[in-house]
Design a protein around this nucleic acid. Structure first.
Length: 109
DNA sequence: AAATTGACGGTTA
DNA sequence: GTAACCGCCAATT
């Protein structure tokens, strides 16, 4: 897999993140079958051309921390209804993107 | 080629 | 909760 292909795969996944949901770099890397390439996912997004209109603001690190030097990201997420924790990070528990949200939704829970 | 850096992750203290 | 450390891999210097 060359650089272009890797980037393309990252973009495809990021573009499929649903509105109001977030994903982590590691999660995306795992989807690519490259669990150790979380940093490269970051590079890919950093290098992501604007014309792709990728919802890269929906990608945060495993701590729910968002992109350093990009305060707007927080506002963008908030505008989508994303919840935040007291420390200002994204509340991953509530907003993490589950590819297979096959929640049995047991009404007794 | 070698060292440094970074939109990262996980473990440990 | 934070901070320090180590592992990881590609891009950059």
């Amino acid at each position: 897999m060359n650089r272009e292909e890797f980037y393309g795969r990252v973009y495809r996944i990021v573009a499929s993140i649903p509105y109001g949901k977030v994903a982590t770099y590691g999660q995306i890397a795992w989807m690519l079958e490259l669990p150790r390439n979380a940093r490269q996912v970051g590079h890919a997004l950093y290098s992501a051309p604007a014309y792709l209109h990728l919802p890269c603001h929906r990608v945060v690190n495993s701590s729910g921390r968002m992109v350093p030097g990009w305060p707007e990201q927080r506002e963008l997420l908030r505008a989508e209804g994303v919840c935040f924790k007291e420390n200002g990070n994204v509340d991953l528990k509530q907003n993490i993107w589950n590819q297979e949200p096959q929640a049995p939704s047991n009404p007794l829970e």
